[in-house]
């Protein structure tokens, strides 16, 4: 025998025909013996019919128009976005962005520090030059040997950064190298402030 609580828990299964033979028999027995449960069962059964009969509400006549407008906006947005699905456009955009970032980084970071880089690079060259001229004095090298080594030292000047200065340096050297100046005078290098003429070499 099932009690009222068990009976109500089985109503849906009974209506869906999901009970086995024994459960169905017990359910029916309780249904006949308990008026309250029978009333509940009747109401549930009736409720189902009422719910099924509820009229199906329909969207308003403007539903399609409103939806189409919203979709049109979505499509425009989507089309713009789809441009980025094209790999060539994507690559171009990424490339241009990278170039822009590089240029911004170059102008904002490189230029403020270029004088210090010049200072550092050129100081090193000058230092080598001075070391060499000191050594040239002490080892009595021929003028040709000194010239070769001086050119070697000049070669160390970073060509891209100091091209104009290097030309100036070469010009000065070639003008004066064949003079009768002593080796020691080669070492007289003035290093003025880093203006357009970065270095002046006197022989």
């Amino acid at each position: 025998m099932i009690n009222c609580e068990r009976f109500t828990s089985l109503i849906t299964d009974y209506l869906d025909d999901n009970l086995d033979k024994q459960q169905k028999a017990e359910f029916k027995n309780h249904l006949q013996s308990c008026k309250e449960c029978a009333a509940v069962f009747e109401r549930v059964n009736s409720l189902q019919q009422h719910l099924k009969k509820l009229p199906s509400v329909k969207t308003s006549p403007v539903f399609d128009i409103v939806l189409k407008n919203r979709l049109r906006r979505e499509l425009v947005k989507n089309t713009t976005w789809n441009l980025f699905e094209n790999p060539w456009i994507k690559i171009s955009v990424i490339g241009l962005s990278a170039a822009a970032i590089f240029l911004i980084a170059f102008f904002s970071l490189y230029y403020p520090s270029i004088s210090s880089k010049q200072q550092q690079g050129f100081s090193s060259t000058v230092s080598n030059f001075q070391t060499f001229t000191d050594r040239a004095d002490s080892t009595n090298l021929s003028q040709q040997q000194v010239e070769e080594k001086i050119y070697f030292v000049i070669e160390e000047i970073p060509a891209d950064l100091f091209m104009s200065e290097r030309q100036h340096f070469d010009l000065l050297f070639s003008t004066n190298a064949h003079s009768d100046s002593t080796f020691s005078s080669l070492g007289q290098i003035k290093q003025p402030a880093y203006t357009k003429s970065l270095v002046t070499v006197t022989f």
Binding site: T12, D13, V40
Partner: peptide, 23 residues
């Protein structure tokens, strides 16, 4: 789901007792 449907029906029939008993 099944037990929830059953409980929902029981709750609703209790709330609609006056209507379901009169029809």
């Amino acid at each position: 789901v099944k037990s929830r449907v059953n409980r929902a029906r029981l709750k609703l029939q209790a709330r609609l007792k006056f209507l379901l008993d009169n029809k």
